[in-house]
Amino acid sequence: MKNQSNSAGNGTPPRTGDLVPKWINLNIVAQDISFFVIGLIAALIVGWAIFPALLYSKQPQPMNFNHALHLDSEIVDGIDGDTPQEKCESCHWFRDDGSFSGIPKLDMCTGCHDDPESPLGEAPEEKAFLVNYVEPEKQIPWFVYSKQPDCVYFSHIAHVKMGEIACTTCHGDFASNKKLPLYVENRLTGYSQSIWGKNISGIYLNKTYADRMKMDDCARCHTEKGQEQNNACFVCHK
């Protein structure tokens, strides 16, 4: 009440007459709105820009790997297959027990890059690779973009072979990549950004499944494909 009387007494008399009650001081309201907007904008900046920047760390992979180059069957022997799928499986294959081998180990690389002294190409990355990994026989500590937490079970063969889902459906197009993207990790959870997706809002925009890999996404796809029974907890959890 004190404020009201103050504003009514100190400000210019209102011209809007009947539209605005006398006790409302438009000046003050304007100030309120300005400050509200300032706070609002600050919050939006914090929430949409600063928070994501702080939340995620960005790290380059220990070395680059040129997928495009290695998938060129004119350059690299052993990349067999007519479909992109089969080409992927040249290096990311299924083991005999149906499990997925994931990112190849060093011995796959040394099948061709066997001599640390004589690089096959000219790229400085290859020289570094030979010196840092091939010679000391050290595995490359890759960051895995699509690494799921330990509580998640995922069968690649069930999706790729039995479900006939292309690798790119979930992983996007890596095959034409010349440079590996940065690995973006959530500092709080330790999850790769690929799980939550690049869209920090968490709202599903229905672009492609390669955007993100949350539980809801798995369930949605199962439902869309008429595989509701695979939404039982134990299908994807261990």
Partner: peptide, 22 residues
């Protein structure tokens, strides 16, 4: 009063950012 207005703005604003939910 201005400060409170800014805070209210901030609180309202933060709701429409991913911060609290994320």
């Amino acid at each position: 009063r201005n400060f409170i207005a800014a805070v209210v703005g901030g609180v309202v604003g933060i709701q429409v950012t991913p911060l609290p939910w994320k």
